[in-house]
Design a protein around this nucleic acid. Structure first.
Lengths: 209, 209, 209, 209
DNA sequence: CATGAATGAGCATTCATTCAT
DNA sequence: GATGAATGAATGCTCATTCAT
């Protein structure tokens, strides 16, 4: 038996299986949460979606809550760099809004691509989608970032809390509807939301002067 | 036992007690849903909030869903006339938006007044508030009405689905934040949302021409 | 419908059923604990011994521990008066020991009478019998009482802790064997234990002078 | 790999490792049983106390029961010679009782020495201590030996079963208390138990004549 | 042989719903 | 029609045991 240096990308069979199982559970949870909602979902539902045994779930997560957290973290870890880039590259308000809505709608579309192609039912029941981990944590990110950007461009005297709430509200609700259309058109949603929000902010800024 | 004709306004003891029980359950459900969210709540939680026995619940409702429906209907029955009036009296887009947002934010403030004064905790946690029956059905009402109004003012060629989604999103998210501020300022929220939305729609209308 | 005064002995059907269920669970637990031991026993075992449903268990007890406690309390409540009487009527050391051992062995015999007649197996496996609620709590009672009595007769200078330990040890171990003999002879066990203990104490008292 | 003749005293690396693992498991089990009791303990608890993997347990033992047996055998193997010596050297009843109780209490003290010095909690809770393998099997040994000795000294007409039960009961209960005192005084316990038992037996012998 | 993750049977517990009183 | 205890299906979770590495 030879001892080999094992770069992260080349783990042993065992380690790979573990990683795969963890991912499988996360993916299953994502699907189940989307299908029947976080609250309605139970651990058996999640594990049934994988080819693992029930007990295996507990080798990876302590509870449904913890899977939710993991999904959220996972989503955030993938979405955060996108937002980061948006923030850094934004030249003005318009480019920021466009890039931010664009990033969000694209991300949402890609996240839900598997479910969409599978024709997963119930997908957009309100009350359900809202509890999706992605939505929840991405909201927090957008909220924080938008505050930073508005400050940068000297519009911090507007009611930023209401403004971010409005932007998030638009993204959330429009996102739901975007996902139900075929083909899913992130670019269209982005144009729409950006135009709406941009003009709105300008109007608020003017009246506030 | 006497057999009496019982006009709605003059019920017998029995009927009055029945009505009181039904109301008690609805009120209890409202409180519990607000406190721990619709999904987390169970029938025991609701019935425990009343001084009734668990079995009594089933004399009035078949399930938690049905209570939800009843609360929703109740809210709708009180909100619908307001929206009706808004729709009828709207002169132009601005007055419509102002009146509609105004109606919604005021209604929301009044609905939550008892909870606000009681300092009920958790009340406006996002994941929770969203499942509130009021939110749910009021959304549907606003959605339908906004479509009608946009059609009236000749802007039906805009993407009305996205537009209503945006309006509802704004109302929802801003509503949550409005409820957390002291004093609760429905008028301020109304101004803000109206200005934002109005300018946004105008910009969309212009670019779409 | 007439309103009747209901003396404790004449409860409604419902109340009687509740009492009966509680007793049934206690009795079942007693049997199961005796048969397979406290630790090996699980709630399903207990409830299976009754004709109740599994959920019903939780209307009466929160856990296996709580049933154990209840059984113990029950036993104590029936044994305590016997010990009380023994303590009050004891004239000298001999009469005390005789009465105390007698009370214990008789009580033990009666407690186990149903199990004995049913020919319950495993009945006297050591590790098992020892965890019996009766044994446990009755021990505490005997311990306390013996201390009081020894003090009364001026032998408190002996090592009372060891003495009570010895008495309890004798009662426990002899009790196990007594229960396995047919016929169960509480009187014989009492004579034996009393004579042994009495002479032992006198010897200790003499050497300690 | 070399094939070597391996006399017991000179094992290869492999064999030594095996022996060490077996011992580690036994020691861990002893500790765990003492800490939380035989019944409450599970295999994970035991293996967690070692630095071995869970699967390794099954290379050495089939079940918790089997570890118990092994511990018991181990204890017996160390205690049996002591009892053997006692039996052989006993001159009369007194010397036998003294030596036997002495052997038992000393053995018990030594067995529990590590736990005592570590201040292990719960150590002597009754329900717990009783299930200790040492207690269990040592009981059997004492029982058998005492029967033999009583027969030797011509008191076999007494109720030997009750007598051994009494002796074992005294040893058990007093042993528990002895272990809780500081310093642990095996000699004192031995004197006490011997005097008590000796006088008791003499009294029984006299009355039985 | 050691490892430790996977397995799945098994147990505790909850809760919507029924129904005798 | 109110009551609230009984019901038992459903769910969370544990743990002895197996087995690929």
């Amino acid at each position: 038996m030879t001892i080999t240096a094992e770069p992260a990308a080349r783990m042993g069979k065992r380690a790979r299986a573990k990683e795969a199982n963890r991912t499988a559970i996360l993916e299953a949870a994502r699907i189940v949460f989307a299908r029947i909602g976080y609250d309605a979902a139970n651990i058996r539902d999640i594990i049934r979606e994988t080819d693992l045994a029930s007990g295996t779930f507990y080798n990876y997560f302590k509870s449904k809550e913890e899977v939710f957290e993991a999904i959220a973290n996972d989503s955030v870890q993938r979405f955060r760099p996108l937002l980061q880039k948006v923030r850094e590259e934004a030249q003005d308000l318009e480019s920021y809004l466009h890039a931010a809505f664009g990033a969000y709608f694209s991300f949402l579309a890609e996240e839900n691509d598997p479910a969409i192609e599978a024709g997963t039912p119930h997908m957009s029941l309100i009350g359900v989608r809202i509890d999706t981990p992605e939505m929840q944590t991405v909201s927090d990110e957008i909220r924080a970032d938008l505050e930073i950007v508005m400050d940068k461009i000297g519009l911090a005297h507007l009611d930023l809390e209401y403004l971010t709430a409005a932007a998030i509200g638009i993204a959330r609700e429009m996102g739901d509807h975007m996902l139900e259309r075929r083909p899913v058109d992130a670019a269209g949603a982005t144009e729409f939301a950006t135009k709406l929000m941009l003009a709105g902010i300008e109007a608020l800024a003017k009246s506030d002067r």
